[in-house]
Design a protein around this nucleic acid. Structure first.
Length: 542
RNA sequence: GCACCGGUAGCUCAGCUGGAUAGAGCACUGGUCUUCGGAACCAGGUGUCGCAGGUUCGAAUCCUGCCCGGUGUACCA
């Protein structure tokens, strides 16, 4: 359609233009263009006059049932029935076809509890991976975990004290308590590090041992707790509705590759400063950062370089995405700039997507003090709310509500998480959409085979059909900038539109039953497809 | 100090590749319905779009300055 209008402009005025169409209020039409307003100066005519000339030229096109000029010079186009119906079946254009992309869809550290912030990150990562896949890319979901360093030292400090030389004390922690147990161990170690000089010294040594353990007991506890952590992480991430990852990267593996890369690029990229090897990020819009410590130990930044190397060996991606909290934004800017210097041929291959924070309306969240909102608690809250309504609170339903809450705000912004609101199940929530889908399916259950997919439409169908026709462009818009929230907004509007339709137009038993059932099928399929991109299950009943 | 992100209705947020009276949800008030599943639908808004300039036929949207909040600012991750 854009081309049709562009051709018309070319034909009338001999000017090449890019036509951007907008969706006006339904009263004006299905699409609108302001091209006449933009051309007014160039052509030297009144914009309304130009609009009228273009409108006259477009009138003959059979895809348009009506072309009008309104306001200061908008061209409003109403589509013909067949053109509008055709749009409802249009697939999004796969703009990333042929690309290979690696993306981290979760990266909680072992030895710490997984909390709501990790869930947020994992859900965003998984959904962005979905968007990338829908846009045609070959997507590899990976995870990356910090299994070495200071936080390990802090946990090991408390764990070794808890064990008191007896490994079986650790081993006997019941499965259900492990997440909070680890959380507590970390918090205790963290507090000791802050308050007690002797403990601090010991923790530094224990952190060092995460690279090279000195005792058999250390290895036993470290290995077991790491294993527990990954079991927990995998279980929770699956429960959240994430698709499984294909590879787990570890900092302990990335470390020596990274250190090697850094050392090899001194002094070209990295410089020695006070014994450490640093990258002058300040010359690249970031900050100067140490990659290798003065004791020769690799730091987080070196490991991220090593990770890039490992990802390349493993997947040869054209692009590589890392989703993190915004507090790491400047840090990644530096690492990515350094990588661009080290591997100029892969410059800008890695992209960091910074997210906001999850804030709770009630109480604070701090992983340092062990005062965290654990994900299982959140699941329980949702479960209770659903059961009050006598609904079946399966993990899929709960995860749907939770994911939607995270995804409906624009990425990068903070999510203010009001448990009561999230759990309310009314209004713009995942539950509303899931319920809307279940309702539609129940209508179809009552109709045996009397369904014809719509080839025509009546006045009462138009609003819903028009909304359905916006699906494809909404998805394209969403994956262009990797912003899932557009799909949330759209699906909510779609479901509202359907609920209105449903209130006014009886399907089962009506003389238009077959036709209307076809529209219900179209709607249910669209809703399901949109929810699938968000990683939300569309239930048959609930 | 410098850098990045944010400031839109009582609350939580869309809208920001400039366009037609600035939109949703929540909350609040009233209504619909002998439920194709009421987790529904309908009606009800006097908003300094943080402030001040600028660009433009036109600015919530672009530019500049300022104010407020958050985050970051090398040997933690």
């Amino acid at each position: 359609m854009n081309e049709v209008i562009a051709a018309s402009v070319k034909n009338l005025y001999g000017i090449d233009v890019d036509i951007v169409l907008t969706r006006p209020e339904p009263q004006f039409g299905d699409f609108a263009s302001n091209i006449a307003l933009q051309l007014a100066k160039k052509v030297g005519k009144n914009p309304r006059e130009i609009a009228q000339e273009i409108a006259n030229d477009l009138e003959s096109n059979e895809d348009f049932s009506e072309v009008t000029v309104a306001g200061p010079g908008f061209i409003n186009v109403r589509l013909s029935e067949s053109a509008l119906l055709a749009l409802t079946k249009k697939e999004p254009l796969p703009t990333r076809a042929g690309k290979t992309i690696a993306i981290e869809t979760n990266n909680p550290n072992p030895f710490k509890a997984m909390h709501i912030g990790h869930a947020f990150n994992a859900v965003l990562g998984d959904t962005i991976a979905n968007l990338l896949a829908v846009s045609g890319a070959k997507v590899y979901r990976v995870s990356y975990h910090g299994d070495v360093g200071l936080h390990v030292g802090k946990s090991m400090y408390s764990l070794l004290r808890y064990a008191d030389g007896d490994f079986s004390k650790i081993e006997s922690v019941p499965e259900n308590d492990r997440n909070s147990f680890m959380s507590k161990m970390y918090a205790e170690g963290s507090r000791a590090y802050k308050e007690d000089e002797a403990a601090k010294k010991e923790i530094n040594d224990l952190a060092e041992q995460s690279f090279e353990p000195k005792s058999a007991l250390y290895i036993q506890i470290y290995d077991l707790c790491k294993k527990w952590s990954f079991e927990q992480i995998d279980a929770i991430v699956a429960r959240l509705g994430n698709q499984p990852t294909v590879y787990r990267f570890l900092e302990s593996d990335a470390d020596h590759y990274g250190v090697e890369v850094v050392k090899r690029n001194v002094p070209k990229v990295f410089q020695e400063s006070e014994g450490a090897l640093i990258f002058k990020g300040s010359e690249h819009g970031a900050f100067d950062n140490a990659f290798v410590a003065s004791n020769g130990r690799g730091l987080y930044a070196a490991r991220d370089l090593g990770l890039m190397l490992l990802k390349n060996e493993q997947f040869h991606p054209d692009e590589s995405y890392i989703i993190t909290g915004e507090e790491q934004g400047a840090y990644f800017k530096g690492v990515i700039a350094a990588a661009g210097q080290v591997w100029p041929e892969q410059k800008d291959q890695t992209v960091n997507i910074p997210t906001g924070l999850v804030k709770l309306t009630t109480g604070k969240m701090s992983s340092r003090d062990g005062d965290v909102v654990e994900i299982s608690w959140l699941f329980d809250e949702f479960k209770k709310a659903i059961e009050i309504r006598e609904g079946e609170a399966s993990d899929e339903i709960v995860a749907g509500a939770l994911r939607y809450q995270f995804l409906k705000v624009k990425i990068g912004g903070d999510v203010v998480f009001d448990v009561n609101e999230a759990v309310s199940l009314t209004g713009n929530t995942g539950s509303y959409l899931q319920y809307a889908h279940a309702r539609a399916k129940r209508i179809l259950d009552k109709i045996s085979n009397n369904i014809t997919m719509p080839t025509e439409m009546y006045d009462e169908d138009r609003a819903l059909i028009r909304k359905l026709s916006e699906y494809s462009e909404t998805v394209e818009n969403s994956f262009r900038n990797l912003e899932p929230h557009h799909i949330c907004n759209y699906l909510f509007e779609l479901a509202q539109e359907f609920n209105r339709y449903y209130e006014k137009n009886q399907v089962v038993g009506d003389e238009k039953e077959a036709h209307r059932a076809g529209i219900v099928v179209l709607y249910a399929d669209t809703l399901k497809a949109g929810l699938a991109i968000l990683g939300i299950h569309a239930p048959e009943k609930m």
